[in-house]
Design a protein around this nucleic acid. Structure first.
Length: 568
DNA sequence: CCCTGATTGCTTACACGTGA
DNA sequence: TCACGTGTAAGCAATCAGGG
């Protein structure tokens, strides 16, 4: 990649991404850091690597001040960016030494303080959309005089006001819930599509509701590879049929991805269950269903009450019950667990594959499960379906003519009320005739396996004590110095990017507390955010619409301070 | 018993390679 | 160039499990 320059000194093109960011936001990481498009800077190959940021910025026309205050990271491909200082300890290493062979795949990510133009641009844009009074009513931190001064180029924001401005801007303009939110592009806000690579935003994930999944399933069975035109038709139909909140609409890519993933799932299914794995009879069943379009997202299994085993007249007959899956938030209250009798076929004495749900277990059945598990358990396989499948037959019997495994089928399939009566009646009839065969196979297989296992399991149970199983280590996060910080970050950004997580992690690890205790890893931070999201969501659901912003730390943080410290 | 960090399984999104 | 397959990252719900 190097080109000759002046005979001896070569030059190297460096791909750069420059982000404008306030220094003091290092502890208030903004989700809306303005990212400039990628650019290239040609720098002499003998430039000292430690000076590369400065050199690049000067080449790109930034001021010396900006160049000196900037910070840089090197990113190879899409891997985690590394701080320049951590890449090389050799002060004399040149750009050629460090990036000579990596120029094609390395990106220099540079963070600089925003130019005053940035504030001015933002102000002008906001004032175009609403009068100053409207901003002021939302607690806009800058006085009218100063705003006028900035807009006319006669004034600059102090460091303090700059910080307040960006905090306000992030809260009211950048945040998705921002009351004065920018008119984002239709593709960004009105659709459910993920964000482009390299963006700081976390990807948005669509959950198809049951009705949508049912339709997609239906269409998939008609044609697993519909044309774009057809998918556009599906899209229009779905968006019309199931309007989402906030004008949120599905995008064609969502449909495309769904079909793509569905096809992939079909292939996976075909591969995972070979005829060799099956007994003769089981193989027969599989062959019969081989011509049936399999469940697209075969992993999305909804456990329903067994219509044969669990004839509970008190329950809504045929009402599907979910234990997990694509249930959306609004569906959460409707989620029921499998009840005692009805879960008979779903218990752990039957193959996991029967339900496809590895964790289906109710409190009522827990003791029985434990007893049974103690008979057939292998160490460190307590919740591994793969391990279970070593001991129970991978039957996954399905009813000919239906793409669902016995004991489980997509709840979505029942969402269409028109389908419910005819489908369920027919399904129930076929299920009854299949049930006897299936049940016999299962009992047989389980008995055989138990017999085979008896000696081994006893032996193994003795050999491997509980202590030898992998022990979980629990990270300890200081409720005094660290939790408040995390909460502050959470309030700002509930889905921080990897980069932000790294920053948070670094920041916490620099704290005094971490000098005495083991460092946190980004994984710990990621988990904290994940669990905190779940917690806030729980509180919202349970507390009938509590807004996180309305909660203070004491309400969110209910756990007593931990004293013991045990790290991963 | 409760809180919360950690784990698991599933679903959707995306990157990349390959072949027509 | 495009469509497609494959692998995997990322996110979520449910659950487990350590520790006060």
């Amino acid at each position: 990649m190097s080109t000759s320059l002046n005979g001896d000194v070569k030059s190297i093109p460096i791909r750069c991404v420059i982000e404008e960011k306030l220094d003091h936001q290092s502890c208030l990481v903004s989700s809306g850091v303005p990212v400039k498009p990628e650019s290239f800077a040609i720098v002499p190959s003998n430039t000292l690597f430690k000076d590369v940021v400065k050199t690049v910025l000067l080449k790109l026309g930034y001021s010396t001040n900006e160049a000196l205050s900037a910070k840089g990271e090197v990113q190879i491909k899409k891997w985690k960016p590394l701080d320049l200082n951590s890449v090389s300890e050799n002060e004399q290493a040149s750009v050629e030494d460090m990036l000579g062979d990596l120029a094609n795949i390395a990106t220099l990510r540079i963070k600089i303080r925003p130019r005053s133009d940035d504030v001015k641009d933002k102000l002008l844009l906001m004032l175009l959309r609403q009068p100053y009074d409207a901003l002021a009513s939302k607690g806009f931190p800058i006085s009218k005089d100063i705003v006028e001064g900035i807009v006319t180029g006669q004034d600059n924001l102090s460091e303090k006001l700059l910080k307040e401005f960006y905090l306000w801007y992030d809260k009211h303009i950048n945040s998705p819930e921002g009351d004065l939110g920018e008119q984002r592009s239709a593709s960004a806000s009105k659709t459910a599509v993920g964000v482009s690579a390299g963006s700081n935003k976390s990807r948005l994930r669509v959950s198809f509701n049951h009705a949508e999944a049912a339709k997609l399933q239906e269409w998939f069975e008609i044609d697993a590879q519909p044309s774009k035109q057809t998918m556009n038709r599906y899209l229009a139909e779905l968006n019309e049929a199931s309007p989402r909140g906030n004008g949120f609409k599905l995008d064609l890519t969502n449909i495309m991805y769904w079909f793509k993933n569905a096809r992939a799932a079909v292939r996976r299914n075909g591969r995972s269950t070979t005829s060799e794995d099956l007994s003769e009879d089981e193989g027969h069943i599989e062959k019969e269903i081989a011509t049936v379009p399999p469940l697209p997202n075969s992993n999305a299994v909804y456990v329903i009450k067994n219509p044969i085993v669990g004839e509970d007249s008190d329950e809504k007959k045929g009402e599907p019950q979910t234990t997990r899956g694509v249930a959306e938030e609004s569906d959460m209250e409707e989620e029921l667990s499998v009840t005692d009798d009805e879960s008979e076929m779903n218990d752990k004495d039957t193959p996991n594959e029967l339900t496809g749900s590895s964790d289906v277990k109710t409190d009522n059945k827990k003791d029985e499960d434990d007893q049974l598990e103690s008979q057939i358990r292998v160490p460190s396989a307590t919740s591994s379906p793969q391990m279970h499948s070593n001991f129970v037959p991978n039957v996954a019997p399905r009813i000919p003519g239906y793409p669902f495994t016995y004991g489980a089928f997509p709840m979505a399939y029942l969402q269409s009320t028109a389908m419910q009566n005819s489908f369920y009646k027919e399904w129930n009839e076929k299920m009854q005739s299949a049930a006897a065969v299936v049940q016999a196979q299962q009992v047989n297989s389980v008995q055989q396996n138990l017999a085979l296992l008896k000696a081994d399991s006893l032996k193994v149970d003795c050999e491997l004590s509980k202590a030898e199983r992998q022990k979980r280590h629990r990270a300890f996060i200081d409720p005094v110095s660290e939790i408040p910080k995390l909460e502050q970050w959470f309030e700002k950004e509930t889905h921080p990017s990897h980069y932000v997580i790294e920053q948070i992690c670094d920041d916490l690890n620099r704290g005094e507390f971490r000098s005495r205790y083991p460092k946190l890893s980004p994984k710990n931070i990621q988990l904290w955010f994940k669990n905190h999201r779940a917690k806030v969501k729980r509180m919202r659901v349970g507390g009938s619409g509590i807004n996180y912003n309305d909660l203070d730390s004491s309400q969110i943080k209910m756990s007593p301070p931990h004293l013991a410290v045990q790290m991963m």
